[in-house]
Nucleic acid binder design. Structure first.
Lengths: 218, 218
DNA sequence: ACCTGAACACCGTTCAAGT
DNA sequence: ACCTGAACACCGTTCAAGT
């Protein structure tokens, strides 16, 4: 019943082993992107990385731990892009800020669409580990910071739920759109912006008690 | 490279074999709901259904075909509930209708939350087969019908995209919320309603050329 | 027409032997 | 400290033999 750990087994201590870990991760991303989940197996990853299967298991306790590391790296890239956008639009109007966030989310997903989609699928399937949770929380915190900058201070509880919903809405639209033929970034970003702005506006107007505090800054 | 078919191999012709198929599907749903994807394997399904593994493969060409059948049944239940709600709210105001749709979506997901979530995960992973596509299209068509009833006629192209986005938004919020502790249905439905109404309102207001036609009925 | 279950294949993982 | 690859275990799938 004890399931295998989902974090790297140990950190590499010598430069050659650091290279091994890098090669394994790069091979894993490449195979996922090129061959999909069907062709994604540990033997193929080890072969492409040019190491033996034993070496892979020296650094990763299992296939899922490898996948989780790819997911965390992907999240960290999104976090960096998001933080930059939040910083950049600090003085801007809400609509402009939301447009920037929508663009970041769309660009992130469409950079390597297949890999991004498969990592999302695996993320849904896998339990969230400790440090994955930290990165996800940091992403949500960026959205909360953005809301604090562009809205009058509502109560904390709502800020958290609101940030989570905005992220879920963006992900829902982008993931669904990305299942079909590659969509136009600009059009897709506009649809995401509509959804985000609309949610905020509705929340503001619909719930007299709860939403009162969420007002655009003067 | 030719991947196995994802539809049932053949229809049962005798009553005992119909019972076999039913037992297999029921066992599959039960195991998914109780043991998760980890415990979901064809040997366990056959054992719980009380049939040999060979019988399972007589009716389903593979594990994924079994899963796809569960997904299609789930979609058909959603379609029926959605069609009833669309019919029921035909004369109602837009806000009331959206609230009804949000409730249908939330109730459907929270009926058997774990099973619903795992089927969603598998649905993302699996290619959409012919008749799965038909059911999904029928669900989207219900949303389009709803929009036609409650909004002034916009152009067709936009109706399709709008319906798809509304579904994606609802799914994004509900799936994400359902990952954590079981959320309150009423609160969750309200968040979904906000998101749906907000998207429609934004689309209406933000895009002078494209959105002009989407106006609430007088 | 339907059912059975041993056998096979593939792939995740381990471990004894190396450098 | 790191690497190797044969061996093992689990599970999806097939197929020859039944009723």
């Amino acid at each position: 019943m004890t399931q295998p750990a989902l974090f790297p087994r140990k950190a590499p201590r010598q430069s050659r082993s650091a290279a091994t870990v890098s090669a394994i991760l790069e091979a894993a991303a490449h195979i996922l992107d090129q061959r999909g989940l069907e062709g994604y197996n540990t033997n193929a990853v080890a072969a492409r990385a040019g190491v033996s299967i034993g070496s892979l298991y020296q650094y990763f306790p299992g296939k899922d731990a490898l996948t989780v590391t790819l997911i965390r790296r992907d999240h960290e890239a999104l976090l960096a892009a998001l933080a930059a956008a939040v910083e950049r639009t600090r003085g801007a109007r809400l609509a402009e800020g939301l447009a920037a966030l929508a663009r970041v989310a769309v660009d992130h997903q469409l950079d390597r669409p297949r890999l991004a989609r498969l990592l999302d699928i695996e993320e849904d399937r896998l339990p969230i580990s400790r440090d994955s949770h930290a990165t996800i929380a940091a992403i949500a915190a960026q959205v909360e910071t953005f809301l604090e900058q562009h809205l009058a201070p509502p109560d904390r509880e709502h800020l958290t739920v609101t940030a989570a919903d905005l992220l879920a809405i963006a992900r829902g639209i982008i993931d669904t759109a990305a299942q079909g033929p590659i969509p136009d970034r600009h059009v897709l970003a506009r649809r995401v912006r509509w959804a985000l702005a609309g949610y905020l506006e509705q929340m503001n107007g619909s719930s007299p008690g709860a939403g009162r505090g969420v007002q655009p800054r003067p």
